[in-house]
Structure formats: structure tokens, C-alpha cells
Amino acid sequence: MVSTNGSSSTGTQRVKRGLAEMLKGGVIMDVVNSDQAKIAEDAGACAVMALERVPADIRRDGGVARMSDPEMIIAIQASVHIPVMAKARIGHFVEAQILQSLGVDFIDESEVLTPADETHHIDKFDFTIPFVCGATNLGEALRRISEGAALIRSKGEAGTGNMVEAVRHLRSILGDIRKITQADSAELFEWAKRLQAPLSLVQEIAETGKLQVPLFAAGGIATPADAALAMQLGAETVFVGSGIFKSDNPAPRAKAIVEATTHFRDAAVLARVSRGLGVAMTGIAMDEINETQRFASRGW
């Protein structure tokens, strides 16, 4: 929501997308308490995602996953200087209102939590703080942008330690963008129809060759090499969920992933930071998860 006081405005798209710009080239880490938040900040995280359970535990526990307890979010805000993000359920605009009143810096309208609305996402223009939303393909990304999202991330399959789905989503989104830049003006109508996305946004992509907002990677990233793969594919920042604090040795792994994200094209640096990190999270293969347990299919 845009508010203007004299010559000064808050909540504009430029201010919202501006924070997403500041997060580029960085690592956003899931944390469940202020100790983990400090470890993340010490390791060089550019932001933390405050949540009660990392996706791997949400997956294991089952049941309904909701917004985190505000007390826990406030404790994490008090413990670090970097931006603090938090998750609201898809369509649960009241959880989002609560998170905004707490002063979180970014809301993730997340498929990792149990959706509250099977048809509608949150009207993100209604809020002063920016939203990040997941997408499995370009159509989904553009629908979220048309609802006001300031940042898009791949969905991946959170909590698995397996990045095959994140790679699929990044390749799908970026591959279609490349194809659209080759399309003629008549073909853009067909693209908009096929993607179920606003024509104006498709035309804009044809002109600029890029998404309207930054594109980050999320879902299953567990190693420095995973982070660098996402970056080389064209992601601009990585979210690491369960991959750090479900590993044997979180602090050095977190630092290694931060370095790998910055030096993502430098194989010598990647080799150096990958050494001796101990065991990564075990992970789950996709065929071990049946369709109904997949988070990525949530969202419309």
C-alpha cells in the first residue's frame, strides 16, 4: 500500500523491489531461533527467514503448518541487524497483516505452509512491506507479479535437500523468457494465453529480456556447489532452508555457501570452500515423495 506524506512515499513498488535488489548475490537462511540467526549473520547471510520449523521438519511432522509465533520472530529481530523475513500461508492475508505489524522486512507467501485459500493468493498491493512468492514456471511467476510480488523464487521441493525441482523451475522460467524474447508481436498473445498471464507483462519481458522483479532460487539447496549451480543457471540469490541447520556442521557450511554464492563462477574457490564440511543433510529423492506430499504443487 502506498502512503504519501509531503514529498515522501512508503510502500511503492520501487521501494519494495529495491530491497530485493539489495539481497542480490547473497544467501537467505532459514532459522528457528535467535542463536541460529546469529550464526547465520556471522556467516555472512544477507537476510534470515524466521520460522518455527524448517521445511524438513514440517515435512516429517505433517499436520497443518502455520505462521510462526510472533514472540519467536521478535526475538530473532532483536538478535540481528540483517533483514528478517517470515512466512504466511498462501491466501492468509491476516497472517500477513500480523507479520507487517511486527515490522518484518519481507513476507514469504509460502507453499511450505499449509495453504489457507485454494483459489486466491494475497493481494500484495494492500501491504507496505514487500512479498516474495514461489513459482514453478513463468506463468505462475507473472501471476504473482501481477498480484504485487516484489520478488520471485523457484519453489523447488523444500525440505528434501534435493535441488532437482529447483533446477526444473529455474530452467522453465528462464528458458521461457529466452523464447519470448525471440517471439514476434503476434506470438506474444499466444504466450500470454498459454502462460495464463497478463499480456502487458509478457510484452514487457519481450522488450527487456528479463523478469520484472529479481529471481532467486529456493528448494533443496544443501551444498556450496548447489548454490553455485543455481547462480550459474541465472538465479540472483539463494535461499537455503533445511540445508544448513540440518547438516552436521552448520556454521562452516553457512559460510561456505555464502562464499560460493559470491564466487559462483570460480571453480577453484568452490573447491576450496567445499572441502571438509562434514555430512550434508541426507535428503530425499523425488520418487520417495508421492504427489500429495509435494509442496510445489500448492499455489495457483
Partner: peptide
């Protein structure tokens, strides 16, 4: 302040009035 306080406003500067974006 935090992101909720991030703003854009006109700056008086030696290069003339400039539209400034302030993020946290």
C-alpha cells in the same frame, strides 16, 4: 528504520532535485 519505513523522496542536491530511494 526497517523496510516498512523505507521511502522515496526528493533530495535537494548539487546535481539538482533528485528522486532518492531510501531502503532500510
Amino acid at each position: 528504520g526497517r523496510q516498512v519505513d523505507s521511502f522515496e523522496a526528493t533530495i535537494n542536491s548539487s546535481v539538482g532535485d533528485f528522486h532518492g530511494v531510501f531502503i532500510r
